[in-house]
Nucleic acid binder design. Structure first.
Lengths: 225, 225
DNA sequence: GACTTGTATGCTGTATACAATATGGTGTCG
DNA sequence: CGACACCATATTGTATACAGCATACAAGTC
């Protein structure tokens, strides 16, 4: 029998499912408060309910869906309050991870920041939000790798997904909000590359706080408190 | 009609299982790196593998077990590195939650700190580690409730469980390490009650940092880097 | 007409059966 | 004697069957 299934996909259906659903939620194709029945998801992706249940547990962990016992699962609602919660946590943790990344002496991997910045600029020039965010996420992943703090990474990956929902929405409404952050991002990458933990942390905290403030009002207007 | 719906009470086997396993891991009855086969857990608690799998996902989320695809699940190893990771994250987040708790104006619930302090002292006087930690966890839960930040609470609850493994171990080795923290805890509770966010945050960060430093060497000696 | 009770249905939660894969031991061959 | 292939077994991963709760709606009662 000739192999027909991709080994990697077969290796972790729940994780793959979770990734696909994540993307759909972040990009807004699955709307807030939309019901997600297990059978619907199972049928849609051609698998049984078992891996779906596990995938939904993963999404619950990352705050993308909410679950009520014996009642079901819904795409997590968006609100200013939720937004505030995510961002207050992010300020603290992203600052920490930037510091720890700067303290790494893996100069090889730090060089990757250069290429990422080029890609970010290209994506921005093309006004390609999806691409921009995809590269941005890879940048975060690199920072997390450099920090080499698995616990911190675990916490942040969850927050990042929630944050991306808001950021993507904001970008669609007003693309220039992204430009705001590009220069600062470049400076942060420089500080990390240079090994300057103090300013990497301070600039990261400042950047995220600014993004938070700049989006806050629109989030309230759009999603309510 | 007085009876409200009690959503939490609706039997949730995975959550109950997770709680029991958590306790076994924290108290060291399930040893580090011990293999946890699904069938073993299922048989031990008289349930099938389905809820066990979900319980183990929950434990994985909280960093108490590690999982390798298709190979199995083990009680998470303890090490100085893991300890450092947990505590650097805790410093940032516990400080934040203390500040937000202080900013709450739920004076009724803040009064509960008094009773908790009494219980803490009693437990300490009796050298009852389990009781001490149980009350301490309730104190944290109260702080989290006051902060009313679900995202932050979600992140911290996971960290707290990991931290408790080390704290409980340290307590067994040397009970006076607990006395160290009682007075400071009292002062933090006071600051929160008084609504002084700045000092609640600063004192919390300082306390956790001190606990971290005081335990760090012993953790390395015992568990290795 | 409002409220309770009965009933149907859809969905979640759990158990069980089955498939796929990792592991360890045994034997064979170099 | 060591390396490697092969098979047996244990364990995870997935599918399916079934039980029980939640919701909506219909019927009956006051």
């Amino acid at each position: 029998m000739i192999l027909q299934r991709l080994p990697k996909l077969a290796a972790a259906i729940p994780e793959s499912l979770a990734e696909m659903l994540e993307e759909e939620i972040i990009l807004g194709r699955l709307k807030s408060e939309e019901r997600l029945t297990e059978e619907f998801v199972a049928e849609r992706y051609g698998v049984s309910r078992s891996p779906v249940r596990e995938a939904l547990r993963l999404l619950e962990r990352d705050g993308l869906v909410i679950r009520e016992a014996r009642r079901g699962i819904w795409v997590a609602p968006m609100s200013q309050r939720d937004f505030d919660e995510v961002y207050t946590c992010r300020i603290a943790l992203e600052g920490l991870v930037a510091r720890q990344a700067a303290e790494s002496n893996d100069t090889e991997r730090k060089k990757e920041f250069r290429g990422l910045l080029v890609e970010l600029k290209e994506a921005q020039a093309r006004n390609d939000a999806r691409q921009f965010f995809a590269v941005d996420v890879r940048g975060s992943a690199l920072v997390y790798d450099l920090a080499a703090n698995r616990t911190l990474t675990r916490l942040l990956q969850g927050l990042e997904k929630q944050a991306l929902r808001y950021r993507f929405h904001a970008y669609e409404q007003d693309p220039k909000i992204v430009k705001l952050s590009l220069d600062d991002t470049a400076r942060i990458y420089d500080a990390i590359t240079a090994g300057d933990g103090d300013s990497a942390q301070a600039m990261t905290e400042k950047l995220i706080r600014e993004i938070w403030q700049s989006m806050r009002e629109k989030v309230r207007d759009y999603f309510g408190q």
